[in-house]
Design a protein around this nucleic acid. Structure first.
Lengths: 188, 188
DNA sequence: CTCTTCTATTGACCTTTGTAAAAAAAAGAA
DNA sequence: TTCTTTTTTTTACAAAGGTCAATAGAAGAG
């Protein structure tokens, strides 16, 4: 809980009153590893803060799933497009490790937008952060080779390569596990 | 000007007072085709509404530029990451056609956040829209072939293929002009 | 219209990645 | 530990895209 407060206080001035409204709506929930948080076709109803855990976003596929994102400790997580549009999700969201979430429903978030001074500002920052992250990735997918993207992960997210099966990383980079294996052989 | 008002009224309830504050800060500016709106290394200071025109975002490169986005009539345009972080831009922004912009400086936007009820809500919607657009593109870059991405452009942005040199489209799809040419031959 | 410049296509060849199938290695369960 | 399942690597072959160089076509300037 304290982690969430810190997360916000980095960016905005949080009054005691606003924090009370906000925190009163958070619900703690625990998940085992490999739990499906959201399935394709379902509509996302939660914005969740990860106290601890790793979460993977992917489009299932017979051959290899397409993993397009991961989320970690102290980040917000949601099928945010489905959450915003209230349309069915086009991808799955699952835990890769045991995970503890603090969850907020759409109704509660909308109440926060209305009841607090700071709600819309927080919502704006959240969307802006997601935008910045995505833009960086989009540019990387266009300008870098698969090998460069793999090397970038080493410097930017060393934890990832340690803790996550390579086949997910391969998919995240945009290649097959076989191709990633060849890259790794080439490098070392 | 009326176009901008319509753009917002689609999403939010705009009071006469808020609109006055907002519109008073907009500055109209005309550009010739091939005008560089922002150069790598410069920090973005504008959020602009395109009354008419086509704008291209790209990272220059000796061989082929990397074009990663276009913007059109009735959209907002900005090197939004540089604008938000106030760090130097890592890409160029240029007009492809004659373009008319209504421009808002960062200072003025921040004043709008403070002075109007609706400022942060508008800012949140803007960031959310950009996020949704980027996510869609990111997934497409990972899951679709170059050929599929080209075909998607036909259904989603037919205007683009009509009005923009193919070499930019090739780059946007993530391939060279030569590869796009081969795809087009294969299709027709 | 003519000339120049920019854009699009083509061909030959090379590199990277995908595919399929198998083996090796690692991780998890009993 | 032993057995089972999952993950990673390897190989051979096919497909897609990059690179280089040349040519054809289209658009813009005078």
């Amino acid at each position: 809980m304290e982690q969430i407060r810190k997360y916000f206080e980095k960016r905005v001035q949080l009054t005691e009153k606003d924090w009370k409204v906000f925190s009163s709506k958070l619900v703690k929930q625990e998940f085992q590893k490999k739990s499906l948080l959201l399935k394709i076709g379902q509509t996302e109803n939660h914005l969740s803060f990860i106290e601890r855990g790793i979460i993977r976003f992917y489009i299932p596929n017979e051959r290899n799933d397409f993993t397009f994102s991961f989320s970690f400790d102290n980040e917000f997580v949601s099928a945010y497009d489905s959450f915003l549009t209230q349309l069915p999700s086009s991808y799955n969201v699952e835990t890769l490790t045991e995970t503890t979430l603090w969850r907020l429903s759409l109704n509660d978030l909308q109440a926060i937008y209305v009841e607090t001074e700071i709600g819309n500002t927080i919502g704006r920052f959240a969307a802006e952060d997601l935008y910045l992250e995505n833009l960086k990735r989009e540019i990387s997918l266009l300008t870098d080779t698969a090998e460069q993207r793999y090397l970038n992960l080493f410097t930017e997210q060393p934890q990832l390569i340690q803790r996550i099966p390579l086949k997910y990383i391969a998919s995240y980079i945009g290649i097959t596990p076989q191709a990633l294996s060849r890259i790794r052989r080439r490098i070392y």
